[in-house]
Design a protein around this nucleic acid. Structure first.
Lengths: 184, 184
DNA sequence: GCATAGTGTATGCGCAGCGCATATATCACG
DNA sequence: CGTGATATATGCGCTGCGCATACACTATGC
């Protein structure tokens, strides 16, 4: 027997699914070729500028081949470039173009607006508790930088100070700051 | 300027994405042919026994053709049947087979276990607040039965008493109780 | 320095899932 | 009974992905 309320389990699951639908719908950009996780790829490259195709694939849960094609699409559309990695001449250092940065800003803005609208119906007191709950759960959901980036693949990292995913030096913010100098 | 904390917005979004990933991973059943929303289709048919292909397609966000093929796969695998609708001889009344019901139970059990494990790290006091927050947000996220079922497409309806999606007579639970007698 | 194993990237090939356009059957309404 | 709307089904082609493979570079051991 579980001490947890079945109702809470259900409501929490429905909430996550419903909110995620909204986020993905808001973040979706028809000018970016390719559905699925292509939009997330732009955010991830923005988070972890200089990451490799292999790392991007692990973050997005795609095969190498699938990731190569995804990057092909982004490059062809002018949103990302494959530049030379500093340490390893086999690897590619992915980064956004100006156009890619512009798309990224638009994606994050729409995401933030959607979430803000939804949260506006929650009282101030409850928001404090919600923030603590989210922090608690997130802090124990990832074991390494890859899984942290996966969870944060649609986050606005620039506005996430004190990111709980960062608690063990494995956060997205950390990854960005270390740039290409440290593999995921 | 938004009075909402940027950090809360980010953490809440990351939480939703991360939890949804976990739910979908847990619910995924390799014995069910076809990825994407095929698993959800079984849950939805279980929720709203007797619904039509058109209704299922709207709930899952698929085209008619895509939904027909999805149902083809479920039927071929022996998890669902197309039976005659009572009122409309054009329409199909979808329902699960014994094997489908078995799969449904397994899917929901894995989902519930995953969510329970995650929520076990939240204090009892915070759980009460979380339940209220989820209720508040969910109650204003859907306008009709289709969008309610979309949000509830991975829910364990049998354990969701007082479902907030039901508040306006448009809930998944309602849909089940009315069976085939009322279109979505 | 050199051989061998390991890693990162790219490509040929085929498959699965989906949407568009279309065809057919049934319903709703005058 | 005729016309338009609705529900389902299918042919066709596209897209995204994975598997297997090829190639380039790195790392390690001798």
């Amino acid at each position: 027997m579980n001490v947890l309320s079945d109702r809470l389990v259900n409501l929490f699951g429905a909430l996550a699914v419903g909110i995620t639908d909204r986020i993905k719908k808001a973040a979706f950009d028809p000018t970016i070729p390719g559905g699925g996780e292509t939009t997330a790829a732009i955010v991830v490259i923005g988070h972890a500028t200089g990451l490799s195709i292999d790392e991007l694939g692990r973050v997005l849960g795609l095969s190498h081949a699938g990731t190569v094609r995804l990057v092909d699409r982004l490059v062809a559309a002018g949103f990302a470039v494959r530049s030379k990695a500093l340490r390893d001449r086999r690897a590619v250092a992915l980064m956004l173009t100006e156009a890619g940065e512009t798309r990224l800003s638009a994606i994050l803005q729409r995401r933030n607006e959607t979430l803000s609208e939804i949260l506006s119906h929650v009282s101030n007191a409850d928001r404090l508790v919600l923030e603590r709950i989210a922090e608690t759960i997130l802090a124990q959901m990832s074991d390494d930088a890859v899984s942290a980036l996966t969870i944060c693949r649609l986050c606005d990292e620039r506005r996430c100070y004190n990111c709980p995913m960062d608690a063990f030096g494995r956060l997205c913010c950390t990854i960005r700051s270390i740039g290409v100098t440290r593999p995921l």
